[in-house]
Design a protein around this nucleic acid. Sequence first.
DNA 1: TGAACTTGTAAATACTTTGTAAAAAGGGGC
DNA 2: GCCCCTTTTTACAAAGTATTTACAAGTTCA
Lengths: 129, 129
Amino acid sequence: MAMLQVGNDRQVMPYCDEHLAMDFTQQAVILDSERMILTRKEYDLLALLVQHAGEIIPREALLMQVWGYGVEIRTRTLDVHVRRLRKKLGGYADQYIETIFGIGYRFQPFHAPRFFQTHVVKPAMAFGA
Amino acid sequence: MAMLQVGNDRQVMPYCDEHLAMDFTQQAVILDSERMILTRKEYDLLALLVQHAGEIIPREALLMQVWGYGVEIRTRTLDVHVRRLRKKLGGYADQYIETIFGIGYRFQPFHAPRFFQTHVVKPAMAFGA
DNA sequence: TGAACTTGTAAATACTTTGTAAAAAGGGGC
DNA sequence: GCCCCTTTTTACAAAGTATTTACAAGTTCA
């Protein structure tokens, strides 16, 4: 069974932390009070990551959700887009977008490591093993 | 489907003691409020040990569960990985990861009572060959 | 049509992870 | 203490993966 589908648990409420705010209904992103100008793919990628904040998302899942690519496709497109995103995220880039070597990427909310106090309980199956 | 399932007695609730916290669904480890950056093998190894905190786990069991090695394989890989883990655990290393000479390793929660720390070793059946 | 922007790819570079070898240190029986 | 076996430590090499840069093709829009 291909467990790479993103479930319908996708966060649609606005995201907001100390530096980054994201409104999914208006497709607007704000970084430190500045409007962030993203291309479509950049937005889609960031949105998917942010909507699954704290979760590791495998490359194949990202390529599937954002690009519609199947698992057989070998490409560096994702990496390049992550880079473009990180560039626009400025100094917070590496704090926000974490590389999970050999697996994929993960968005971490700013000052995230408090995972035992947040009560955001999500079904751990969204991305399968 | 992932075939290398570990026994179903494995702890999935987060682990947490005075210094170390571990969330197995997010694959996140925190040591004294700092996020601990682990490689895959390091994480797998630590997770297995922590999920069996207090139990002696024989080398062969670790090599089998984390590496998929059979009993015939002779290697020092495990030792080296334990060392890398200990390094990242800093000053708590020896408190947390105990060497059971001639048998294997054991993870001990911080300030765990050591009443039964003897060298008479009876490996739990869970890891029997 | 032309300018500005978006996107995917190629290729070079940089970096990470991992296992092994080998020397040093430690344990335990006698 | 001595010997043998186990563990620790260091260093290194191979393989794999990610990052970065540059470019060319494709879009959009006036």
